[in-house]
């Protein structure tokens, strides 16, 4: 039973990372109908930025965290401006290829700058544990869960209570109407990319103590976040997080209780299952968008 709970917590923590990546994918998809396959690599880049600020420059963890997130916001806007905006209007296929290409590009660049060794940063959560009786839970995993909760709350308040957040939802629902309202649509789209990259950066920094930072960390996690987004209904932000957690938990339990190998295929089994049985996902947002 203790094992089960510990695996459950690890699974939720992993799932939160999936969820945060999927959330970024969904956010971009909802506003611009671009599926960003480089979202996991943006997360990876966030981890390297944090390593640069904390590990190399020796800044305080929280300051380094904040700087990494801010730097990623810039990266997100740059990607939108330089890569995505020029090819909007081309077939979906071109945009998909471009984001896949972006992923390769970011991985190579990261390898060239930071090398191919596994890097790690010291965080306030490294190696610490919380004990509930016999149950021992690692701080780093709990920190991911708590941070995800906080992030979701902040995003919820932003999208529902602020003028800019409401304008972003409006733009994603009806871009033409957003133009008619005088909402600066191009700037809003740029900010959506910034927010997505910031969320990815948070995931990257939180993940740093659990896995190491290396240039391929985003590939597997990024791919596995697509089943999460699909499970959640591809278009629903809470769905992305819930989908991520479900995938993370099932994958971790599969890794613990089943034979070697099941762990890495499990997200894709779920992906196929969802597509076959319930293609609209748990939070069924498919087909709701009026273009």
């Amino acid at each position: 039973m203790l094992d089960f709970i510990q695996q459950l917590v690890s699974g939720v923590a992993l799932g939160c990372v999936y969820g945060l990546i999927a959330l970024g994918v969904v956010l971009i998809y909802k506003t611009t109908e671009v599926v960003n396959f480089a979202q996991g690599d943006l997360m990876m880049l966030g981890g390297f930025f944090a390593y640069t600020f904390i590990g190399i420059l020796g800044l305080n963890y929280w300051l380094g965290f904040a700087l990494a997130v801010a730097a990623m916001a810039l990266v997100g806007m740059l990607v939108e401006r330089l890569l995505v905006r020029p090819i909007l209007g081309f077939p979906q296929f071109a945009i998909v290829m471009a984001t896949i290409g972006l992923g390769f590009f970011l991985r190579s660049i990261a390898g060239m700058i930071w090398g191919t060794d596994d890097l790690k940063i010291d965080t306030p959560f490294s190696n610490g544990v919380v004990k509930f009786g016999d149950l021992v839970l690692a701080d780093d995993k709990l920190s991911v869960i708590v941070a995800t909760l906080i992030l979701c709350l902040v995003l919820y308040l932003f999208f529902n209570k602020t003028r800019l957040g409401t304008a972003m939802r409006g733009t994603s629902e009806n871009m033409l109407a957003a133009y008619y309202m005088g909402i600066p649509v191009k700037r809003v789209v740029s900010l959506v990319w910034a927010i997505s990259a910031m969320v990815a950066a948070c995931a990257g920094v939180l993940l740093a103590p659990i896995t190491f930072i290396h240039s391929n960390v985003g590939l597997a996690l990024g791919l596995a976040s697509f089943p999460a987004a699909v499970l959640g209904g591809f278009g629903s932000i809470p769905g992305a997080v819930v989908g991520g957690i479900i995938i993370g938990v099932l994958q971790t339990l599969a890794g613990f209780y089943m034979a070697e190998g099941w762990k890495s295929v499990f997200p894709y089994i779920i992906l196929l299952g969802v597509l076959l049985l319930k293609p609209e996902g748990l939070f069924g947002a498919l087909g709701r968008k009026k273009v």
Binding site: A178, M181, G182, I183
Partner: peptide, 18 residues
């Protein structure tokens, strides 16, 4: 061309965006 999932109030506030 209303925003279908925003509430009526939010739609009106979007009109006042600028």
């Amino acid at each position: 061309e209303v925003f279908p999932f925003l509430s009526v109030r939010e739609n009106l506030m979007m009109g006042a965006y600028t």
